[in-house]
Amino acid sequence: MTIELNNLTLIYDKHPAVHHLSAAIEGGDLLAIVGPNGAGKSTLLNALAGLRTVEQGKITGLNPDDVAYLPQQTQIDRSFPLTVTELVATGLWQRIGFHQSIGNKHQTQCEQAIAAVGLKGFEQRMINTLSGGQMQRVLFARVLLQDRPIVLLDEPFNAIDAQTIADLTRVIQCWHKDQRTVVMVSHDLEYVRQHCPKTLLLAREPIGFGSTQDVLTTDNIKRAQGMVEAFDESAPWCRKEAA
């Protein structure tokens, strides 16, 4: 299923954070969203996750129930007294809801997910005793358990060591092989060149979209870096046609 972004504009206080973006994300794509700070990458991901309203334009072909979304870690209360297994099991929520019991099948899936991210033996550890890298492994295990056709990752490898990145990249590659659509925000151009076939280069305006090789050219990157981070308070109203 193709996700169509049709002349999409996302706004903060009248200023565009993402400006007239059109792109088609095909089913099974492994797409990187790249761009400087303030370029609208996380805002776009939030919109795809259904967490913010779309002010102008349209996103079609995206059912919010099909999405597993991994935001940046700062959103999570690490002091809450849960074990690794318990946190991973919250990934079952969409399937079991308020009252369905966690059966043997679910327990096995849970164990498999924890093993797949290399955390065997950590099942009963409290989450407040984990390192940043281990916590990211736990959150990947939860995404595994959610088992959705579309996976959104917001800077998943921020402040994570090389070994963890290598292990979790294998998980991402498995998703890609399973024909899941994976969209990840990243600042690491080298990583994107190596692992993501497609890239969207964003600087509020879309600078380039397509195969990573074509998009991440020196020219394009320079153009993206030229984006002025501060909003222009005296900017005139945008007259471009809405979709």
């Binding site: 996750a49 259904g50 967490l51 919010p64 999405v67 979304y69 935001p71 959103q75 999570i76 209360d77 809450f80 849960l82 946190l87 919250t90 929520w93 989450i127």
Partner: peptide
Amino acid sequence: VDPLFLRR
């Protein structure tokens, strides 16, 4: 633990 997860 993770309010964003549920808000979806």
